[in-house]
Design a protein around this nucleic acid. Sequence first.
RNA 1: GGAGAGGUGUCCGAGUGGCCGAAGGAGCACGCUUGGAAAGCGUGUGUAUCGCAAGGUACCGGGGGUUCGAAUCCCCCCCUCUCCGCCA
Length: 425
Amino acid sequence: MLDYKFIKDNLEAVKANIANRFMQADAEMVVALYDKRNGFIVEIDEQRRLRNENAAKMKGPMDQAARQALIEEGKKIKEEISRLESEAEETLKLLDMEGSKIPNMAHPDAPVGKEDKDNTEIARFGEPTKFPFKAKDHVELMEALDLVDFETAARVSGSKFYYLKNEAVLLEMALTRYALDILQKHGFTLTITPDIAREEILEGTGFNPRGAESNIYALEGTGTCLIGTAEIPLGGYYAGQIVDFSKGPILMAGVSHCFRREAGAAGQYSKGLYRVHQFTKIEMFAFTRAEDSDAMHMKLREIEEEIFRSLGIPFRVVDTCTGDLGAPAYRKFDLEAWMPGRGDEGDWGEITSTSNCTDFQARRLGIRYKNDEGKNVIAHTLNGTAIAISRGLISVIENGQQEDGSIRIPEKLVPYCGFEKIGPR
RNA sequence: GGAGAGGUGUCCGAGUGGCCGAAGGAGCACGCUUGGAAAGCGUGUGUAUCGCAAGGUACCGGGGGUUCGAAUCCCCCCCUCUCCGCCA
């Protein structure tokens, strides 16, 4: 969430930002509600002061009549306070509701635009893989090699679930371990996170656990949800705490399952493993001082590039446009891998994403640090995908396909897999 | 899941209705002392919010309640520990 005082002091900029992001939020209403809430606070505080004063008069011994008069006075104040409090509560609820719709400010260099085609390509590694034969998509390749089973999963769990089978299982483990080794080398603390988190943590991280358009599975009657990404349990790791940056930023890596409802998402571009209800992901998360987050964002992006470059997968990097940022992000870079089986002739498909959320998540999560003046200030948080296994599998398998339907494993991955190729069979 | 014991500031820990934003200690910061350090002595040491400020208000796990007045009494919830049950 954004700071209300900031919204009030920078109303025009906040409104422009909402427009640039094509979001529905009413900054003016937030300011009006904020002022109204502050009015209540002043009134309530004044009444409480009167109450405390009145109560203090009664400390010592005194005659019955005087005491009785003070008690009567106290009762009146009490009623007034509770009347004001119940009125204020409604304003507070509205403020919170409207306030949480206001997105984070965007980086001045983030391209302004509405949808993915407005993203700016800023780097490219390798060139789209060319085959002397008609490329197949990962579904065809994997089903032929008995590496995946969507049909049985649909019967057992529903559509958009899958069983990974045989070498694909080992490939998932190999990609996981490969990414973790790289992250450990870069100083990340490795974790396997809970796959379930409390709703407050979801909300603090900027996810909406409820509503028809929510992408989150809520666990009925528990106040908890299945996580959609390890960003949630990692972001929540220091919730309510004052973190110590004396040894530099805090880097955490999390292995988790990700659960997404993906309600309404369908079509050719969601085929196979591309958009599923459950997958494994290795996530990077960073907590930094305010002045360090831009540099950290570049570092996360470089690590993502390192992982896919070393796997020999062609990809490009895009600077995500304002309309595509999502509420918490200040700036976002996506890596899009070349997927030879995507669409008719292959296409780019998003494989990782790294966001600088500045203090937007940390404000509601209550994550702070002591700055040089010894003041507690809100930390910055960043996240980035090291590798999302399902899409990682797509890129490895589609780019590694051979004419005979076998899959060549990237060289760097061979020691982790224990095999150089899968198939043919 | 059942029974019990707890949750107080950075940490340990006192506090069972008003004198408590909270004793005492540790830690930390600054000063004195020292050749330098340790010890010692002294001083200071939470956060949020409203306000130009003075100052006010709130916060003792969270939320309700009782009361003129709650860290303290009552109810619900969360968490930790011990024992039992169940279980991988």
